[in-house]
Amino acid sequence: MRIKSLYSFLIGIAYAVQSMGIPVGVVTVKPYQLLAITLVYKASFKKVLLAITFFMLSHALLVVFFNGQVTFDPAAYVFTIMIVVYSYLLLFELKRSFGVVLMANSFVYFIGVALYFYALYSGDYVNIHHDVSERSDLVNKISSFVFFDGTRVRYNGFALDPNFYSFYVNILFGIALCLSYIHKYHLSRLFVLMSAISVMLTLSRVGVVSLLFLLLAWGWVSSGNIKRLGVLVALGVATTLIGAASIYMGRSLFSYEDVGDSRLWVWFFHLKNAWENGVGYMGQGLTFDVVRYLNDDIFHKSTHNTVLYSIYCFGFGITAVFILMWLKRLFNLILSGMSEKSVLLIAVHLVYAMSSLTLDLMFTVPFYLYIVFCYMYPVKTRNKF
């Protein structure tokens, strides 16, 4: 029993410490990668490995057949396989040892917040845009917990990016909420508190809004009709305030001072470039860097949108299938009635969508963790475990 608990604790720790790793040659191997490599021998995960490999090889062949070429980035394919395998490991352990996994994350969240305030107090942080050439230079350093761009100080967490870290925390929090209602697990208030503190310190607008959605959904399913009315009023007020703050802070969907800094402008030109470059229905293959697909005469910026990233890698056709699958699940959740489980699932579903539309999440664990969760817990049945 102790061995199983220790294993579950390690699985939980591995999720939380995303930026930490072990230097091996010119790369830093992450804890979840090591777990995925060492535990993939299990029969159930071998099937997952074979399914992913078959899909990727089939896609590569289709890209060559339709486009005549493929951008084959072996590291991107191997990395994705490890992420999906680890996502299965984590979800299985959440179901089997819910409390232990969340305790591990609470422990890491507390350490991260403590190190953040220590770095602020000691001045052990750097300007992220000027003092380091790459964010990866901050791996395993206390200064990595502070995102300082010369004007604002934000909490980086264990992801070297405050926006990404808020997504990591929110998705695990949302899935934990869902599992606690599906299986009647006890949800630790310490985990909820540390999750909320971690997200708030990142100052991520989408992250804070997502946290608000999850907390309101949790309050809705835990309250009577009068309290639910209060929840709706609170949601309206909070949405108005956050929306106003977002416009005031600038660089969101619109930027009146510099149109080139507007997210809508970035999305438009990425979509236009993908169409003109013949990405087509099948894409050009999985890659860590979609900027290589950009024409030289336009900006070289990240897509800041996982759907656009998917278009470059998998094409318009497969991406459209992904979107339709997402919409199908959302409609099924809505049509299934406003039960406690469906309200929480809808909230997590919307959080996932908001984050995917504002960040490049193709190579993050929570992005695939929720996909695995959707597969394991279809809308019309209790679960498939």
Rank of each mutant, 00 (worst) to 15 (best):
K4P: 00
I13C: 01
A16I: 04
G21F: 00
T28Y: 11
K42N: 03
K47I: 10
A51F: 08
I52T: 00
N67E: 12
N67K: 12
T71M: 08
D73Q: 09
A75S: 13
T80L: 15
I81V: 08
M82R: 00
I83K: 01
Y86I: 05
S87G: 11
S87T: 10
L89P: 04
L90M: 05
E93P: 01
L94T: 06
F98T: 06
V100C: 00
L102T: 02
N105W: 03
V108M: 15
I111E: 14
L115H: 11
Y116T: 10
D124Q: 06
E134A: 03
S136R: 13
S136Q: 09
L138W: 10
K141S: 14
V146F: 08
G150L: 11
T151R: 14
Y155A: 08
A159I: 06
L160T: 02
Y168T: 02
G174C: 07
S180F: 01
Y181R: 15
L187S: 06
S188P: 07
R189Q: 12
R189S: 15
L190D: 14
V192M: 14
V192I: 15
S198M: 04
S198Y: 02
L201N: 09
V209H: 10
F213Q: 12
V221T: 15
K227E: 14
V231Y: 14
A234G: 13
G236V: 02
A245T: 09
I247H: 05
Y248P: 00
M249T: 09
R251C: 01
F254Q: 08
D258Y: 14
D261T: 13
S262C: 04
W265H: 06
V266R: 15
Y281G: 10
G283I: 06
Q284W: 10
T287L: 04
V291M: 14
L294C: 05
T303K: 03
I311N: 01
A320R: 09
I334C: 05
S336V: 05
M338Y: 13
L345V: 11
A347G: 12
V351H: 02
T358C: 01
D360Y: 04
F363K: 04
V379R: 03
N383G: 11
